[in-house]
Design a protein around this nucleic acid. Sequence first.
DNA 1: ATCCTTGCAAAGCATTTGCAGTCAC
DNA 2: GTGACTGCAAATGCTTTGCAAGGAT
Lengths: 151, 151
Amino acid sequence: MPQSHRPPEAVLREALEANGQRFTEQRAAVYRFLSSTDKHPTADEVFLAVRSQVPVISLATVYKSLETLVGCGLAMKLNYGDGSARYDGRTDPHHHARCLECSRIFDVAGDLPSDEISELKEGTEGFHVTGYRLELTGYCTRCQPVEPAEA
Amino acid sequence: MPQSHRPPEAVLREALEANGQRFTEQRAAVYRFLSSTDKHPTADEVFLAVRSQVPVISLATVYKSLETLVGCGLAMKLNYGDGSARYDGRTDPHHHARCLECSRIFDVAGDLPSDEISELKEGTEGFHVTGYRLELTGYCTRCQPVEPAEA
DNA sequence: ATCCTTGCAAAGCATTTGCAGTCAC
DNA sequence: GTGACTGCAAATGCTTTGCAAGGAT
């Protein structure tokens, strides 16, 4: 399970080869950035961040690279409908908490007991459950609704 | 046992008035359709369905009406990023199961034990949790992966 | 009568795509 | 050398918006 202490390039190269795809500097830069942050950036944010580290890269390539990473299982795409999709470079089991005020996403460690899921599966009548996703919603430290006053 | 045994028009009118908005034939038609189906239609599907019951209604109005319903708490917007958003007219607690093959969404009765959620809350460090959303993924009856061919 | 809603079409965004040059293998 | 990948820009698809006419209260 802990393969994350290896250099990201090695992890990426292996995953790409397993999927018959090529290792490129652009994909490496995108993966390097994504796996080094817990900010769940949008494609555009990845583009801006990576641009300062790699001579040339286009937004279209960032989109393509992100999709490639998702396809290789090295990233996850998060959609909340409020604007752009966000990407998560963590691959270990965890959940997300989304602030209803500022829309930022936070990681939440933990896993749901499989028997809770199994229980729900029984209500699906023929639907074959292969996975699930849990999202908490609320207010982050900065956006506590204690005071309606805004800065 | 929701309050759905009252005519949808009455429910809608009340919710609209509570939010200072007006009752219109278009909004009624959208709400009538949405609350009578468990298909989680897209805005376009609502448009096509409602069009055959109401003399004139535009797609833009359907979008506006759906947003109004969401704002009044009579509907929920579901975003999965794969194309259009979908709308759910049910307001009682339930989960969703999404087919990875055909993208259709199915209702799953049930509720997660609150202590499971509380347990997760402890890992959020200052994040004030007000709600959660659970989504199951897998394959529906029609899309069962009969042959588990993999590469 | 007031002012919220509608319908139409144009605009706005995020994301995807076609294609020629470039690069990884 | 070959086929995959990149960059550019145009295209796509969903959703929103501006505005004048119409409708609810």
